[in-house]
Every structure is written in structure tokens, then in C-alpha cells.
Write a protein that binds this DNA or RNA. Structure first.
Lengths: 163, 163
DNA sequence: GGAGCGTCGTTGACCCCGCAACGAGTCGGG
DNA sequence: CCCGACTCGTTGCGGGGTCAACGACGCTCC
């Protein structure tokens, strides 16, 4: 395989037909996330971001995570993570714990209420994914979607800074 | 074909492996749009939304569009569109015109400066799409991506309101 | 032809996020 | 030791978004 610097698919101009998949991708994302967010807010009073934060925490060892790591996983700035956790703390869904191994660090830890809230909200989220995303894709195409999306994510994430 | 209510791919539980493509999709979108936004801001002082607004306008007949329609195409609320156009007007990139056929309607119209700005910013955007998105996908997979993303977009957009 | 209802875009209040600056804590070298 | 340089999370500020309420206008029907 050629290790061509970065893209080299061809320079790409406006009105190029290869923009079609890109536009479809953008629209898909916009509509699906909006739907998932609406459903969670309407049925459980949680934004999609808040739900994902709880989800990330429940999958972490001890149901706790350093703020910095949490910010990364949420693709959020550090301050964004701080304020998101602030809200969840106010709602009693997570607690703040000072990190044992690093006194300047803080950890967010899921409370019992947080676990419970997540459990009741999960069906809504999962139903949304099935209804808006998975059910629109032919079964045979799913592996391709997974592979390509993973490649895109890695490429856009990995090529950090340097060309 | 079965007209099964909505999803019926299978109820879907947490930790289901079918969530993998969904997660990859979410990460891909997050990283790619962030990159495109950063690049446009750094090189042209435009947010991705502002760029897309200009792009939509340039593709419209007469380079003008009703506010409502613009909001739809941007997947934005009406007030969101109003404020976005406000900024572009302040920058001199678009102008406001009262709609000829409906006195309560307003239209946004691209100025010469807007067209010019779009033209200079386009290469950055197109390069980003090629580099972060297209070049990560095998050529043979691109049609599948386009087809599936279109299907997902339509499904999440079309099933408006009613089950 | 005016009354009532729907639609269009804007505005005010509020929410959420990123950036830059900060205080607190860690770590390595003199 | 202790002093600088770095890292961690929080905070002030400002940008950008939504929702609800509004004024202006179009439309229909009596």
C-alpha cells in the first residue's frame, strides 16, 4: 500500500461527487444525535452529554475516573468536563473524590442514584440507537460502517498537530 | 418486507457488540468536525457553521434563501439561524433582504465579499474532508458509506414526531 | 372587509462550552 | 532542601445555541 503523505485521493473541488458521502455523513450525525438528545431529555431529564458521562463512569473501574481522562473520553475541554460534572453533582448522580495518588487531582465517582438513573435511562438510549441508526443499515453493511468509522475516527484523532 | 413498527433489529442491551459501529460513528464525527472547525478558524476566521451557511447560500438560486429554509438546512433553530446571519451581516458577508412575495419574510443574500470569502476558505474545508474523512476510507467502501449514511439521515429525519 | 388563526423572523432569558488565567500540587536538579 | 517548570482542575469571560413570547404579516371565512 502507498504511504502517500496524507490524503492524495485527489485535490477535490467544490461540486465534486465525492462530497456526497461526506454530506450524508454530516446529516446523519446531526439528525440522529438530535433525536437521541430529545428523547433522553423528554423521558429522563438528561442531556445526551450527561447520559454519556454517566455511561463512561459506569464502565470505569470502581465507577470513578479522573477529570482529565473523562474530558478526553467526552471529547470535551477540561472546563467543559468540570461544569458537566458540577451539574451531575448538583443532581446527586455523581460525587467528587480527591485522588489518593495525586492530591491535586479530582475524580468523579458515580453514586447509587447515578447508577439507578443510568439504568432507567439506558432503554431509551438503546432504543434510539436501534431505531435511528442500526435499523437503517443493512446487516451486511454494518461491518463496513464499523471499520470505516473507526478508521475515520483514528485518522482525525491520531494525526494530532504535525502533518 | 416486514413493516415491523420501527426498529426490531432486536431489543439491544448494554454491552451489545452491535454498539461498536455506533460508537465508532460518534467518535468519527466528533473528531472530524472539530478538526474542520479548528482549521477554518485558524486559517480564515470562520466557524464551521458560518462556512456551511455561506456554502448553502452560494448553492441557492440568486445566492439567497429564506431564513426558515436556511435554519432547516443548517439543522438549527430559527433563532439560531437569526443570530448566525446577524454575525455574517456584521462581517459584511451577507445582507438581509425583505422577501418580495411575503412581507413578513426575510431573506439572507450573499454579498460579493461573502462569495469571495467562501472561495478563499473552500480549499481549507475541502482539504480537511479529503484528509480526515475520505482518505481514511477504502475507495470500494465509499459507496456503502454514502448509502448507509443517507439511509440513517433519512430515517432519523423522516420519522418526525409520530411513531 | 374585518376577525381570528397560523406562520415568519426577531428578541430576552438562560444554558452549555471553550479559552486564558489562576492556585494548588508534583517532580527533578542544584 | 528548595526552586523552578510542569500538570491538574477550577473559574471569569465571552461566544454560540435553544426555548418561549412577541409583533408583524398572510389567509380564510363569515
Amino acid at each position: 500500500m502507498p504511504t502517500l503523505a496524507t490524503s492524495q485521493v485527489q485535490p477535490l473541488t467544490p461540486r465534486d461527487p465525492r462530497l456526497a458521502p461526506w454530506r450524508a455523513f454530516v446529516m446523519a450525525q446531526a439528525h440522529v444525535s438530535r433525536r437521541l438528545d430529545e428523547d433522553l431529555r423528554a423521558e429522563h431529564g438528561l442531556s445526551l452529554q450527561e447520559y454519556v458521562a454517566l455511561l463512561i463512569l459506569v464502565e470505569a473501574p470502581d465507577h470513578r475516573l479522573r477529570m482529565g481522562r473523562l474530558a478526553e473520553l467526552l471529547t470535551l475541554s477540561k472546563s467543559g468536563a468540570t461544569r458537566l460534572i458540577d451539574r451531575l453533582v448538583d443532581d446527586g448522580l455523581v460525587g467528587r473524590v480527591t485522588c489518593s495518588s495525586d492530591l491535586r487531582g479530582a475524580e468523579a465517582a458515580l453514586t447509587e442514584a447515578g447508577v439507578a438513573r443510568l439504568r432507567t435511562a439506558a432503554p431509551t438510549h438503546l432504543r434510539g440507537i436501534a431505531e435511528y441508526f442500526l435499523s437503517a443499515i443493512d446487516a451486511e453493511d454494518i461491518p463496513v460502517v464499523e471499520r470505516t468509522m473507526r478508521a475515520v475516527g483514528d485518522r482525525a484523532c491520531g494525526t494530532r498537530g504535525r502533518a
